[in-house]
Amino acid sequence: MSGEVMTRTAALPGQTEAEEDVTPEPQGTMSMRYMVIARIMLVAAMFGAWEFAPVSRGIKFWLSSPSAILSTLWGWMVDGSLWAHLGATLSVMVTGYVLGCAVGISLGLLFGFLPRVYRVLVPFIAAFYALPKIALAPLFIILLGIGMSSKVALVAITVFFLLLNSTIDGVRDVDRDLVQSLRLMGATRIEVLRKVLLPSALPWIFTGARISVRYAFTATLLAELIAANRGLGFLIEFNSGNFNATGSYAAIVVLVAFSVTLTEILTRVQAMTAMHRN
Protein backbone atom coordinates (compact mmCIF):
# COMPACT_ATOMS: atom_id res chain seq x y z
CA MET A 1 0.00 0.00 0.00
CA SER A 2 2.79 2.38 0.95
CA GLY A 3 4.64 1.41 -2.20
CA GLU A 4 1.75 2.84 -4.12
CA VAL A 5 1.96 6.10 -2.22
CA MET A 6 5.49 6.77 -3.40
CA THR A 7 4.95 6.00 -7.06
CA ARG A 8 6.09 8.99 -9.04
CA THR A 9 3.51 10.79 -11.14
CA ALA A 10 5.21 10.88 -14.46
CA ALA A 11 1.83 10.81 -16.10
CA LEU A 12 1.39 13.36 -18.83
CA PRO A 13 -1.75 15.40 -19.00
CA GLY A 14 -4.31 13.72 -21.13
CA GLN A 15 -2.74 10.42 -20.24
CA THR A 16 -5.04 8.83 -17.71
CA GLU A 17 -4.96 5.76 -15.61
CA ALA A 18 -6.23 2.86 -17.56
CA GLU A 19 -9.15 2.18 -15.27
CA GLU A 20 -10.55 5.62 -15.91
CA ASP A 21 -10.11 5.38 -19.60
CA VAL A 22 -12.89 2.87 -19.97
CA THR A 23 -15.38 4.46 -22.29
CA PRO A 24 -18.66 2.65 -22.72
CA GLU A 25 -18.67 0.76 -25.95
CA PRO A 26 -21.41 1.71 -28.33
CA GLN A 27 -24.26 -0.58 -27.46
CA GLY A 28 -27.79 -0.95 -28.67
CA THR A 29 -30.44 -0.20 -26.06
CA MET A 30 -31.55 -3.83 -26.19
CA SER A 31 -28.16 -5.36 -25.30
CA MET A 32 -27.74 -2.65 -22.67
CA ARG A 33 -30.99 -3.72 -21.03
CA TYR A 34 -29.93 -7.38 -21.07
CA MET A 35 -26.69 -6.46 -19.41
CA VAL A 36 -28.39 -4.61 -16.60
CA ILE A 37 -30.77 -7.52 -16.06
CA ALA A 38 -27.85 -9.97 -16.08
CA ARG A 39 -26.03 -7.90 -13.48
CA ILE A 40 -29.06 -7.67 -11.23
CA MET A 41 -29.56 -11.40 -11.48
CA LEU A 42 -25.93 -12.06 -10.67
CA VAL A 43 -26.08 -9.88 -7.56
CA ALA A 44 -29.38 -11.44 -6.49
CA ALA A 45 -27.96 -14.94 -6.92
CA MET A 46 -24.84 -14.01 -4.95
CA PHE A 47 -26.76 -12.46 -2.09
CA GLY A 48 -29.28 -15.30 -2.14
CA ALA A 49 -26.54 -17.90 -1.82
CA TRP A 50 -24.86 -15.84 0.89
CA GLU A 51 -28.12 -15.41 2.80
CA PHE A 52 -29.39 -18.97 2.57
CA ALA A 53 -26.12 -20.91 2.52
CA PRO A 54 -26.67 -24.15 4.47
CA VAL A 55 -23.76 -23.75 6.89
CA SER A 56 -23.29 -24.34 10.60
CA ARG A 57 -23.98 -21.55 13.10
CA GLY A 58 -20.26 -21.16 13.83
CA ILE A 59 -19.41 -20.50 10.21
CA LYS A 60 -22.49 -18.36 9.87
CA PHE A 61 -21.03 -16.05 12.52
CA TRP A 62 -17.92 -15.35 10.43
CA LEU A 63 -19.79 -15.39 7.14
CA SER A 64 -22.58 -13.10 8.34
CA SER A 65 -25.45 -12.49 5.93
CA PRO A 66 -26.76 -9.69 3.74
CA SER A 67 -29.82 -9.20 5.92
CA ALA A 68 -27.69 -8.87 9.09
CA ILE A 69 -25.35 -6.43 7.32
CA LEU A 70 -28.29 -4.37 6.07
CA SER A 71 -29.86 -4.19 9.50
CA THR A 72 -26.52 -3.15 11.05
CA LEU A 73 -26.20 -0.43 8.38
CA TRP A 74 -29.76 0.66 9.04
CA GLY A 75 -28.99 0.87 12.74
CA TRP A 76 -25.93 3.08 12.09
CA MET A 77 -28.00 5.34 9.88
CA VAL A 78 -30.79 5.64 12.43
CA ASP A 79 -28.53 6.37 15.40
CA GLY A 80 -26.50 8.79 13.22
CA SER A 81 -23.12 7.15 13.89
CA LEU A 82 -22.65 6.40 10.18
CA TRP A 83 -22.87 10.08 9.27
CA ALA A 84 -20.49 11.03 12.06
CA HIS A 85 -17.87 8.53 10.82
CA LEU A 86 -18.35 9.53 7.21
CA GLY A 87 -18.08 13.18 8.19
CA ALA A 88 -14.89 12.56 10.16
CA THR A 89 -13.23 10.76 7.24
CA LEU A 90 -14.37 13.35 4.73
CA SER A 91 -13.19 16.30 6.79
CA VAL A 92 -9.72 14.78 7.36
CA MET A 93 -9.42 13.93 3.71
CA VAL A 94 -10.64 17.26 2.36
CA THR A 95 -8.64 19.39 4.81
CA GLY A 96 -5.44 17.44 4.18
CA TYR A 97 -6.02 17.42 0.43
CA VAL A 98 -6.67 21.14 0.14
CA LEU A 99 -3.72 21.97 2.36
CA GLY A 100 -1.38 19.65 0.48
CA CYS A 101 -2.52 20.98 -2.91
CA ALA A 102 -2.20 24.63 -1.90
CA VAL A 103 1.29 24.32 -0.46
CA GLY A 104 2.48 21.88 -3.13
CA ILE A 105 1.36 24.04 -6.06
CA SER A 106 2.67 27.26 -4.49
CA LEU A 107 6.07 25.81 -3.71
CA GLY A 108 6.23 24.13 -7.11
CA LEU A 109 5.63 27.48 -8.83
CA LEU A 110 8.13 29.18 -6.53
CA PHE A 111 10.79 26.65 -7.47
CA GLY A 112 9.96 27.20 -11.12
CA PHE A 113 10.50 30.85 -10.41
CA LEU A 114 13.78 30.35 -8.51
CA PRO A 115 15.48 27.51 -10.39
CA ARG A 116 18.72 27.96 -8.46
CA VAL A 117 17.05 27.42 -5.12
CA TYR A 118 15.39 24.37 -6.56
CA ARG A 119 18.68 22.93 -7.77
CA VAL A 120 20.05 23.23 -4.23
CA LEU A 121 17.02 21.50 -2.75
CA VAL A 122 16.58 18.70 -5.30
CA PRO A 123 18.30 15.90 -3.31
CA PHE A 124 16.33 16.69 -0.16
CA ILE A 125 13.04 16.79 -2.00
CA ALA A 126 13.89 13.53 -3.75
CA ALA A 127 14.78 11.87 -0.43
CA PHE A 128 11.48 12.89 1.14
CA TYR A 129 9.61 11.95 -1.97
CA ALA A 130 11.04 8.45 -1.87
CA LEU A 131 9.98 7.98 1.75
CA PRO A 132 6.69 6.07 2.09
CA LYS A 133 4.67 8.71 3.91
CA ILE A 134 2.70 6.17 5.92
CA ALA A 135 5.90 5.54 7.89
CA LEU A 136 5.47 9.03 9.29
CA ALA A 137 2.07 8.27 10.78
CA PRO A 138 3.35 7.14 14.23
CA LEU A 139 5.58 10.20 14.36
CA PHE A 140 2.65 12.50 13.63
CA ILE A 141 0.66 10.78 16.36
CA ILE A 142 3.45 11.49 18.88
CA LEU A 143 3.75 15.06 17.70
CA LEU A 144 0.11 15.95 17.10
CA GLY A 145 -1.92 13.44 19.12
CA ILE A 146 -4.43 10.91 17.87
CA GLY A 147 -6.99 13.56 16.95
CA MET A 148 -7.73 15.00 13.55
CA SER A 149 -4.54 17.01 13.09
CA SER A 150 -2.13 14.06 12.90
CA LYS A 151 -4.26 12.47 10.19
CA VAL A 152 -4.61 15.74 8.31
CA ALA A 153 -0.83 16.09 8.44
CA LEU A 154 -0.34 12.64 6.94
CA VAL A 155 -2.79 13.29 4.12
CA ALA A 156 -1.41 16.77 3.49
CA ILE A 157 2.19 15.60 3.24
CA THR A 158 1.24 12.78 0.86
CA VAL A 159 -0.67 15.16 -1.41
CA PHE A 160 1.95 17.88 -1.03
CA PHE A 161 4.74 15.83 -2.59
CA LEU A 162 2.56 14.64 -5.44
CA LEU A 163 1.48 18.18 -6.28
CA LEU A 164 4.95 19.63 -5.76
CA ASN A 165 6.36 17.21 -8.26
CA SER A 166 3.68 17.55 -10.88
CA THR A 167 3.85 21.35 -10.65
CA ILE A 168 7.64 21.31 -11.00
CA ASP A 169 7.36 18.88 -13.91
CA GLY A 170 4.86 21.23 -15.53
CA VAL A 171 6.99 24.31 -15.00
CA ARG A 172 10.09 22.55 -16.30
CA ASP A 173 8.24 21.40 -19.37
CA VAL A 174 7.42 24.98 -20.37
CA ASP A 175 8.77 26.06 -23.73
CA ARG A 176 11.71 28.33 -22.83
CA ASP A 177 11.20 30.22 -26.09
CA LEU A 178 7.76 31.34 -24.91
CA VAL A 179 9.32 32.67 -21.70
CA GLN A 180 12.00 34.50 -23.65
CA SER A 181 9.55 36.02 -26.07
CA LEU A 182 7.47 37.40 -23.19
CA ARG A 183 10.57 38.70 -21.39
CA LEU A 184 11.68 40.45 -24.58
CA MET A 185 8.32 42.20 -24.69
CA GLY A 186 9.14 43.59 -21.27
CA ALA A 187 7.31 41.15 -19.00
CA THR A 188 8.48 41.05 -15.40
CA ARG A 189 9.21 37.71 -13.75
CA ILE A 190 5.83 37.77 -12.02
CA GLU A 191 4.14 38.41 -15.36
CA VAL A 192 6.06 35.54 -16.95
CA LEU A 193 4.89 33.34 -14.07
CA ARG A 194 1.27 34.36 -14.50
CA LYS A 195 1.10 34.43 -18.28
CA VAL A 196 3.39 31.56 -19.26
CA LEU A 197 4.51 29.28 -16.44
CA LEU A 198 1.17 28.82 -14.73
CA PRO A 199 -1.01 28.26 -17.82
CA SER A 200 1.60 25.95 -19.26
CA ALA A 201 1.88 23.92 -16.05
CA LEU A 202 -1.88 23.82 -15.50
CA PRO A 203 -2.57 20.48 -17.22
CA TRP A 204 0.18 18.85 -15.13
CA ILE A 205 -1.14 20.42 -11.95
CA PHE A 206 -4.58 19.20 -12.80
CA THR A 207 -3.41 15.66 -13.46
CA GLY A 208 -1.54 15.70 -10.15
CA ALA A 209 -4.59 17.00 -8.32
CA ARG A 210 -6.79 14.32 -9.81
CA ILE A 211 -4.44 11.44 -9.06
CA SER A 212 -3.78 12.58 -5.51
CA VAL A 213 -7.47 12.36 -4.53
CA ARG A 214 -7.03 8.59 -4.37
CA TYR A 215 -3.81 8.89 -2.41
CA ALA A 216 -5.52 11.25 0.01
CA PHE A 217 -8.28 8.68 0.50
CA THR A 218 -5.82 5.85 1.09
CA ALA A 219 -3.75 7.94 3.51
CA THR A 220 -6.86 8.96 5.47
CA LEU A 221 -8.00 5.38 5.78
CA LEU A 222 -4.57 4.13 6.85
CA ALA A 223 -4.26 6.86 9.44
CA GLU A 224 -7.68 5.92 10.82
CA LEU A 225 -6.80 2.24 10.87
CA ILE A 226 -3.66 2.95 12.89
CA ALA A 227 -5.15 5.12 15.59
CA ALA A 228 -8.48 6.86 15.71
CA ASN A 229 -11.77 7.07 17.52
CA ARG A 230 -13.79 8.13 14.52
CA GLY A 231 -13.96 7.63 10.76
CA LEU A 232 -14.51 4.78 8.29
CA GLY A 233 -11.09 3.30 9.00
CA PHE A 234 -11.88 3.27 12.70
CA LEU A 235 -15.24 1.64 11.99
CA ILE A 236 -13.55 -1.30 10.26
CA GLU A 237 -10.79 -1.52 12.84
CA PHE A 238 -13.21 -1.32 15.77
CA ASN A 239 -15.61 -3.95 14.47
CA SER A 240 -12.98 -6.47 13.51
CA GLY A 241 -11.19 -5.75 16.79
CA ASN A 242 -14.39 -6.83 18.54
CA PHE A 243 -14.73 -9.90 16.31
CA ASN A 244 -17.90 -8.38 14.89
CA ALA A 245 -17.86 -9.82 11.36
CA THR A 246 -21.21 -8.31 10.44
CA GLY A 247 -20.04 -4.88 11.55
CA SER A 248 -16.80 -5.21 9.54
CA TYR A 249 -18.70 -6.20 6.41
CA ALA A 250 -21.09 -3.31 6.92
CA ALA A 251 -18.16 -0.87 7.25
CA ILE A 252 -16.60 -2.25 4.07
CA VAL A 253 -19.91 -1.78 2.25
CA VAL A 254 -19.84 1.87 3.30
CA LEU A 255 -16.26 2.15 2.09
CA VAL A 256 -17.14 0.65 -1.29
CA ALA A 257 -20.02 3.09 -1.66
CA PHE A 258 -17.72 5.94 -0.71
CA SER A 259 -14.97 5.00 -3.23
CA VAL A 260 -17.45 4.39 -6.01
CA THR A 261 -18.97 7.83 -5.44
CA LEU A 262 -15.50 9.40 -5.37
CA THR A 263 -14.45 7.68 -8.59
CA GLU A 264 -17.70 8.67 -10.23
CA ILE A 265 -17.22 12.31 -9.27
CA LEU A 266 -13.63 12.29 -10.53
CA THR A 267 -14.65 10.73 -13.83
CA ARG A 268 -17.35 13.36 -14.30
CA VAL A 269 -14.95 16.20 -13.50
CA GLN A 270 -12.38 14.79 -15.87
CA ALA A 271 -14.90 14.40 -18.67
CA MET A 272 -16.01 17.97 -18.12
CA THR A 273 -12.48 19.36 -18.31
CA ALA A 274 -11.63 17.24 -21.32
CA MET A 275 -14.67 18.69 -23.07
CA HIS A 276 -13.61 22.15 -22.01
CA ARG A 277 -10.10 21.70 -23.37
CA ASN A 278 -11.35 20.83 -26.85
Partner: peptide, 16 residues
Protein backbone atom coordinates in the same frame (compact mmCIF):
# COMPACT_ATOMS: atom_id res chain seq x y z
CA UNK B 1 20.90 41.22 -20.75
CA UNK B 2 17.80 40.88 -22.90
CA UNK B 3 17.43 43.78 -25.27
CA UNK B 4 13.95 45.09 -24.47
CA UNK B 5 14.10 47.78 -27.16
CA UNK B 6 13.64 45.32 -29.98
CA UNK B 7 10.58 43.44 -31.13
CA UNK B 8 11.66 39.98 -32.24
CA UNK B 9 9.60 37.91 -34.60
CA UNK B 10 11.35 34.58 -34.26
CA UNK B 11 11.64 31.90 -36.91
CA UNK B 12 10.00 29.52 -34.49
CA UNK B 13 6.36 29.96 -33.62
CA UNK B 14 6.16 31.35 -30.09
CA UNK B 15 2.42 31.94 -29.84
CA UNK B 16 0.90 30.95 -26.51
Amino acid sequence: DLNRRVGYMTQKDTLL
